[in-house]
Amino acid sequence: MQAAVIVFPGINRERDMARTLKLVSGREPAMVWHADTALPAGTDLVVVPGGFSYGDYLRCGAIAARAPIMDAVRAHAAKGGLVLGVCNGFQIICEAGLLPGVLMRNQNLKFICRDVYLRVERSDTPFTRGYNAGQVIRVPVAHGEGNYIADGKTIARLEGEGRVLFRYASPDGMIDPDWNHNGAINAIAGILNDEGNVLGMMPHPENHVEPSMGCTDGRGLFAGLVDHLKQAA
């Protein structure tokens, strides 16, 4: 799996992501500067990592979504290439029009960093084939603006087409407002585009991949992508 990690000014989880990609796929990802206009040839997966691109000034992800490299990312997605946006990356790809909806401030108006539980809704996608449907995984979140919302029609479509891949849940997989830390509608933590090749999610699976760091629940996402690409090749 050849991955490309996009680096915008103010992004700060690109190292976490690069380490995880290397660890799981065995290959060093390319780090691609925001001012570039092309992705490295042979890129299988584009990752837009977490952080505070442009300081989150103006609106989270709004400036990064208009960076020169984003045309290449959109073209990659249009060709069916895989795109993963995590945290600020999710905000950026929403702003870039690759996914519907927006991320509002957490309902308690505070930044929240903690481990949360996610229910994996489907296992038949490139991003979730490493998990079982209904499986509950534990991964950290670290965001102030992760409260997903879209208009009623869009939500109905996302739900109807099974495009909600992750939901905030209790440790035993129940959807419960007490376990939905940011107040996202329908406890949505991650969604897929209509072609099924672009995933945006708020939590950080890349921070839970090493046994020695306490939890490996995030590994399945990356291992699944590696398997998917191997099979496709």
């Binding site: 930044f111 960093c113 306490g214």
Partner: peptide, 12 residues
Amino acid sequence: EQYDHVILGNTV
């Protein structure tokens, strides 16, 4: 919980 204490992936 208002501080990102896991970024960089090294907080044991």
